[in-house]
Design a protein around this nucleic acid. Structure first.
Lengths: 152, 152
DNA sequence: GCAGCATCGTATGCGTACAAACGATATCGG
DNA sequence: CCGATATCGTTTGTACGCATACGATGCTGC
């Protein structure tokens, strides 16, 4: 081991018991980091991220969607979904055609490669969820997800 | 209202009941987005982000820390904390001096402006946590935070 | 119709978040 | 003492995430 004493200095007096590590925002952020790491390790494709996976699965489920609509379904604003779609299109997992009735819209859909990929990864999704919730008992897992759903 | 019928097409058949919106990772991501928005609206400074706040509060509590040590205490890797510290230093909220015993380290501490700012914002921290948890009853809030702490 | 407003997708800028590689420094084992 | 190893902070590259502004297109109400 290569331990080193950390710097010590006089802390400021804190108003009664404000502990950063107990704040719900900090805990959510850390839970998000942990989930992302589990996802990248387990989803079965080195390149696919959580948001890319969400977009692919939604298109797989819904068949054809406009870009912003897909963004709303996956909780991404227009600027964010634009980049996600651009990268998936570059990898030829998504294709697009103009909308007949609305010249502003891009009709997005999966390519056959995209459908194949989702087909391969889809069974890993539940495994990631399972691993994420693993520290909790089954009853606690159900409770946690139920509470989490109400925080949206 | 300016509603527009969304594109419709044939969805692929999904393996039994995989609902993206029910996956814990997606819910955590959305909870994180919601918390960040509440934080930025309520913390009392337009520029300070959640991670910058965490770094400032830790320095306020601990007095003086090396950069990577601060990163570990706030769950940021060296590349991330580097950018956070650079921006806080640019705003003259943090200063640094070389470590006497270890030439690799930067000893970070708050400037008086940094201490003043933390002093002003600190009372808003609990308000953000309260707002984040507001959809839950007090008992549920306690439960949720307890479960969340075990997912780390 | 047509003016005003809404929505579509794009672009820029800033701020996390992390992998990977790096040079400098520190420590440990032999 | 010295080579192997670990840690420190930096840099580069990629990917969200959102604010803001933009031009193009669609819709609504007068």
């Amino acid at each position: 081991m290569n331990v080193k004493p950390e710097i010590k200095a006089e802390p400021s007096t804190m108003p009664d018991g404000y502990v950063l590590e107990d704040q719900v925002g900090h805990l959510i952020r850390r839970a998000h980091q942990r989930h992302t790491a589990l996802f990248m390790a387990m989803i079965g494709d080195e390149q696919i991220t959580t948001t890319q996976y969400a977009a692919l699965v939604k298109l797989y489920q819904m068949g054809e969607l406009s870009q912003n609509h897909l963004g709303r379904l996956t909780a991404m604003d227009p600027a964010t979904i634009q980049g996600v779609i651009r990268r998936l299109t570059l990898r030829k997992l998504i294709s697009h055609r103009p909308d007949k009735n609305d010249k502003r819209r891009r009709c997005l859909s999966l390519t056959s490669a995209g459908r194949d990929l989702v087909g391969r990864l889809l069974s890993n999704g539940p495994k990631v969820s399972k691993a994420t919730l693993d520290p909790l008992s089954p009853a606690e897992q159900q409770q946690f997800v139920a509470l989490l759903k109400r925080l949206t």
